[in-house]
Design a protein around this nucleic acid. Structure first.
Lengths: 334, 334
DNA sequence: TCGTTCAATATGAACGTTCAAATTGGCTCG
DNA sequence: CGAGCCAATTTGAACGTTCATATTGAACGA
C-alpha cells in the first residue's frame, strides 16, 4: 500500500497551496468555483482523505462523543443497542464518532470521564441512566466537560431549570395513552404492574396509568390501589405477583406494565385473553405478540446531538441548558 | 478550565527534556530510577495526560479498532451487546479503543472500511457475521488492512488455511455436548430444530446433534431425519413447525435448537415437561428457565486481539493468519 | 593520562492539518 | 491615475507528541 496522499500532495498536483485545499474541504464558499472544481478533481483522483488525528490535533477537537456501554441489563438490553445505533447514524451526519467505554460503577465511570477527556479522546459525553443525586453529572459540570444525559435529572423540583441539558422519554404520557386506549376499548379493571417506589422512571409510569384511570374509569370500580402492583424487574417475580393478586381475588380486564420483563411474566399468568402492555418494545414482546410502549430512540439521539452541538458543527459547553421530553408510541399487538 | 499540561510543561517542571518525559511513559527502563520518580511525581502533580491525537499523528497508529454495529437482530441482539462489552474491556487492557460504525449492507460496510482506514481513524477492523464468498474480507485483504473475523471463512475446503485470521465458536461441539447430556439423562427421541440448509452456522449445529445421536442413540428409533426440523428464525414459525410435527405423529423426548428464538417458539408447544435447549443464552431463556448454549464471548474478544496484535503492543498485518475455535458451554436450567 | 565505551539525557525535525496574518491582483471611485 | 478596497490565494507557524540523532559525563583499560 503506497503512502496515503496529504494536503501537500493534492496542492502540488492541483497547482495551489495547502490552505486552498483545506478551504475546499472546510470552507468551499471562499474558493473560486473553477479552482474548487480543479482541486476536487485532484482529490478524487488521488483518493485523498484528511488524516483524522492531524485535524484533531490542530483543531483541538476530537469530533467524538463517549458513551458507556453498560453491563447487560436483562431483557431490555436491546434498548441501549438501538440507542447506540441511532447515535452512530445521527453522528455520521454531523461528522461525529462514538467511542465506547465500560465502567464498573459511577465512580469508575467518572474515572473514565477523566481519562478520555484529559487525553482529548472525546469532546463530550452522553450519559445514560441518570438517578437521584447523580455524582456523574455534578463532576462533569464542575470540570467544564460538555455532556447531555438520556434521562432527566431526578430529584429536582423544577426540571426546566436543570443544571445541564437532558433528553428523556415521557413514560407518563406513554402509559397514560396505553391505559386510555384500553379504557376506550371497553376494559374497566385495568391494572398496573410496576416497580417498588421510589423509582424515577417507575413512578412516572405509574402516574401515567393513574392519570388515565382517574380521568376515565373508576365508575363502580374499587380503589385504584388494589389494581396497583409492584415487584422487582424480573419475569418470575412478575408471575408470582400476578398469581398472588388473583388469589387475593383481584380480577383484571387488562394490564399495563413498567417494563417488558414484567409484561412477560404477567402474561404467563393472565393468558392470552387479557391484553397486556409492556414498555420498551423489546424483540421478545414482538415475538410473542405482546403490545408495548416504544421509546423514540432515533429522536432521542437527534435531540442529544442538537442539545450538545446546536446548529454549529462543534460540541460546545451549552450555556442555555435546554432539554427535550419526547413522547413514546404504543405498539398494539395481538 | 486551564489549558491542559503538555510534555513540555512536565519537562520544565521536572528539569528534564521532553524526550525524557516521553521515555518515562513509553520506555521507563531507559530512564534512571531517580529521574523517573521525579518525573512521575510531576506528572501526578500537574495531572498530565498525553494528548491522544498528537500521539496518534506522530506514531501513525490510532490504537482503535472499528466494528460495525449491525441492525437490530431479533431476540439475540444481546450477543453483539455482550461481545462489544468484552471487546471494550479487553481493549482497555491493551490500550485500544473501539469505534462504532453502521452500514446498510456489505457494500456500504466496505465504503465505511475505506472511510475509516483512509482517515486513519482505525488501525483495523473486527468483522462479524461472515458468510460464503464474503466480499468484505477479500476487500480488506486486497487493501492490506488488518482485520480479524468473528465467524470462520465459510466455504473453504480447509479452514486451517484461511487467508485471514478468524475466531469462532464451535457450535457443533456445543450441540453435540447438549445432545449427549440429554441422552445420558435417559432421553432417546431428541429432536433438532434448526434453519433451512445451506447455512454455515446452522448446518454446523445440526451436525453436532447428528454426531451425538449417531454415536449414542438410534437403538430402535426411527430415522434421524424425522427428528430433524427446520424453519425461519422466528418464534411463531418455530411454534408452527413443532405443532405440525406433532400432528404428523412425531413425538419428542427433548429438543435442541439452533437458536434461542427457535427454542422459545418450540417451548410454547412442547410445554414444560420436555427439556428444550436453545443457543446464545439470551436473557429471555434465562428469564424463562430454558437451557441454552452460551458462547464464550469474552474469550472470543481476547482471541481477536491476540490474533490482531500478537504479543506486541500494536496492530500488525498478520503474516501467519492464525485462527481460534472456541468451545461453548451449555447452561442447564429448569 | 587519554582515548574508548556506554548509559543517560537532550536537541531538532517531523507527523498532516488548520489558524492567523500576509500577499496578490483586479476593480472602483474621487 | 493613484489610493483604497475586496476577493482569492499563499505563507509561516503551531497543535503535542515521538523518532532519529547528537551530546554529555562518568567509568574503564592500556
Amino acid at each position: 500500500m503506497p503512502r496515503a496522499a496529504t494536503v501537500a500532495d493534492v496542492a502540488a498536483a492541483a497547482g495551489v497551496s495547502r490552505q486552498t485545499v483545506s478551504n475546499v474541504l472546510n470552507a468551499p464558499d471562499v474558493v473560486r468555483p473553477t479552482t474548487r472544481e480543479r482541486v476536487e478533481r485532484v482529490i478524487a483522483e488521488l483518493g485523498y482523505r484528511p488524516h483524522a488525528s492531524a485535524r484533531r490535533l490542530r483543531t483541538r477537537q476530537s469530533s467524538t462523543l463517549g458513551i458507556r456501554l453498560s453491563q447487560v441489563h436483562g431483557i431490555s438490553g436491546a434498548v441501549l443497542d438501538r440507542f447506540l445505533h441511532a447515535l452512530v447514524e445521527h453522528g455520521d451526519q454531523r461528522d461525529m464518532r462514538i467511542l465506547l467505554f465500560t465502567a464498573a460503577d459511577p465512580d469508575d465511570e467518572i474515572r473514565q470521564f477523566a481519562r478520555l477527556s484529559d487525553g482529548a479522546d472525546v469532546d463530550g459525553f452522553v450519559v445514560t441512566g441518570t438517578f437521584h443525586d447523580d455524582p456523574r453529572t455534578s463532576w462533569l459540570r464542575e470540570h467544564g466537560i460538555p455532556f447531555v444525559t438520556f434521562g432527566r435529572p431526578w430529584g429536582l423540583s423544577d426540571m426546566n431549570a436543570a443544571p445541564h441539558p437532558w433528553v428523556d422519554v415521557d413514560g407518563r404520557a406513554g402509559l397514560r395513552e396505553a391505559t386510555t386506549e384500553l379504557l376506550a376499548r371497553g376494559h374497566r379493571r385495568v391494572g398496573f404492574l410496576g416497580w417498588p417506589s421510589p423509582s424515577g422512571q417507575g413512578d412516572e409510569r405509574r402516574r401515567g396509568w393513574r392519570d388515565a384511570m382517574a380521568r376515565d374509569a373508576m365508575r363502580g370500580v374499587p380503589g385504584l390501589d388494589r389494581l396497583d402492583l409492584a415487584c422487582q424487574d424480573d419475569v418470575t417475580a412478575a408471575s408470582h405477583t400476578m398469581a398472588a393478586a388473583r388469589e387475593r381475588g383481584i380480577e383484571f380486564d387488562a394490564l399495563v406494565c413498567a417494563s417488558d420483563t414484567l409484561a412477560l411474566g404477567a402474561s404467563f399468568v393472565l393468558g392470552t385473553g387479557i391484553p397486556v402492555v409492556g414498555y420498551d418494545n423489546t424483540p421478545v414482546t414482538d415475538a410473542l405478540g405482546i403490545s408495548s410502549v416504544e421509546q423514540p430512540l432515533a429522536e432521542v439521539a437527534g435531540a442529544a446531538f442538537e442539545l450538545l452541538m446546536g446548529p454549529t458543527g462543534r460540541v460546545v459547553l451549552p450555556s442555555a441548558t435546554g432539554h427535550r421530553l419526547l413522547r413514546p408510541q404504543v405498539i398494539w399487538r395481538g
